[in-house]
C-alpha cells in the first residue's frame, strides 16, 4: 500500500517534470521578451530626467505626478479614451451585421466574402492610411466630389473624424473575423425555432442569438478597444500635429524629447488605463451571459 502511494507520488513527479519540459521554452520566451522589458520600463519610470544627463538613477513618483497634474496630458488621455470608445462602438455597429451575414452565408460564397474582409489586412496600415489621406485631404477625392455636387468644400483631413474613420477601417476586419466565428457556433435551427414560435427575425435575433453571442462580441470589442487605445500611425497621419493621442505622445517623449523616464511612466499609465477600462466593461455584461 505504502509502496503504491510512493510509486504514485513518483509518477506524479515525473509528470510534473514532463509538463515543465513542455512549458519551459515558452515560459522563457515570455520572460525574456515581455516581463523583463516591462520590469526595466517600470524601473525607468521611477528615474529622474535631466536635459543634460538625460536619465538619472532615482526612485521618485514625479513622472506619474506630472501626468496626473497637467491638464494637457489628462486631455490627451481623454481624447484617446474618447476616440477608442467611439471607434469600438462604430466597429461593433458595422461589424455585427456583417459578421452575422457572413456566418449564415452559403459556403461557396462565404469563402469569397471572407477573402474580401481579410484583403485589407494584406496592405500595410501606413499604405492604407495614405489611401485615406488621398480621399480626405483638401483637394482630395471627397473634397472634389462634394465641391462638384453640392458646391461645399469638405476638408476632413486632420480632424478627429478622420482619425476615427481610419481606426474603424483598420480594426473592422479583426472584429468581423472574431465575431463571425462566434456567430458560426450558434445553430441556425435556434433562430428557426424562435421564428416558428412566432418571433419575427429581428426579435428572434435579440431574444435568442444575441444573448448567446454576447460573450464573444464582448471579447471582440475589447480587442478592438485595446487596438484603438494604442493606435499610432492613424492619429499621426490622419490627425496631424495638433491632434494628440497617447501612443504618438509616448513616442515623441521617448524619441524626440529623449525623456525616457516620463515615456516609461506614460507607457504604464496607458497600459493600466486600458486594463482597468476592459475589466470595467466586462463587469457590465450580466453574469449569466459571461463566457
Amino acid at each position: 500500500m505504502g509502496a503504491d502511494i510512493a510509486a504514485g507520488r513518483r509518477s506524479r513527479t515525473a509528470q510534473g517534470l514532463a509538463a515543465g519540459a513542455f512549458l519551459g521554452p515558452a515560459t522563457c520566451v515570455v520572460l525574456v521578451t515581455m516581463v523583463a522589458p516591462l520590469l526595466l520600463l517600470a524601473r525607468y519610470s521611477a528615474n529622474r530626467y535631466s536635459a543634460t544627463d538625460l536619465m538619472i538613477e532615482a526612485v521618485t513618483p514625479e513622472n506619474y505626478l506630472r501626468f496626473f497634474t497637467d491638464t494637457f496630458y489628462l486631455g490627451v488621455m481623454r481624447t484617446t479614451i474618447g476616440v477608442a470608445v467611439l471607434s469600438t462602438l462604430l466597429c461593433v455597429l458595422f461589424g455585427l451585421p456583417l459578421a452575422w451575414r457572413l456566418a449564415r452565408m452559403a459556403p461557396r460564397w462565404k469563402g469569397v466574402c471572407m477573402l474580401g474582409v481579410i484583403l485589407p489586412l494584406f496592405i500595410g496600415s501606413t499604405v492604407r492610411t495614405v489611401g485615406w489621406m488621398i480621399l480626405l485631404a483638401r483637394g482630395g477625392l471627397m473634397d472634389i466630389a462634394t465641391t462638384r455636387l453640392f458646391a461645399t468644400r469638405l476638408d476632413l483631413m486632420f480632424t478627429p473624424t478622420a482619425v476615427i474613420v481610419g481606426i474603424v477601417s483598420f480594426n473592422l476586419p479583426y472584429l468581423v473575423l472574431t465575431m463571425q466565428s462566434v456567430f458560426d457556433r450558434v445553430d441556425v435551427q435556434l433562430e428557426q425555432a424562435a421564428q416558428a414560435l412566432g418571433a419575427p427575425p429581428v426579435r428572434a435575433f435579440w431574444r435568442v442569438v444575441w444573448p448567446l453571442v454576447l460573450p464573444g462580441v464582448a471579447i471582440a470589442a475589447v480587442m478592438c478597444f485595446i487596438l484603438s487605445m494604442n493606435a499610432y500611425a492613424t492619429p499621426v497621419l490622419l490627425g496631424g500635429p495638433r491632434f494628440q493621442m497617447m501612443a504618438p505622445l509616448l513616442y515623441w517623449e521617448f524619441g524626440t524629447n529623449n525623456n525616457w523616464p516620463f515615456a516609461a511612466a506614460l507607457a504604464f499609465i496607458l497600459m493600466g488605463t486600458t486594463l482597468l477600462l476592459t475589466v470595467f466593461a466586462n463587469m457590465l455584461i450580466p453574469r449569466r451571459y459571461r463566457a
Binding site: 435551427q189 428557426q192 425555432a193 421564428q195 416558428a196 414560435l197 412566432g198
Partner: peptide, 20 residues
C-alpha cells in the same frame, strides 16, 4: 406567410432548445 406567422409547432432534429 413568413415562418413566424404560420403557427406551426416544429420539433427539430437537434431539438434547438434555447441553451440560455
Amino acid at each position: 406567410l413568413p415562418p413566424y406567422r404560420r403557427e406551426m409547432g416544429i420539433v427539430f432534429q437537434s431539438y434547438a432548445l434555447f441553451p440560455h
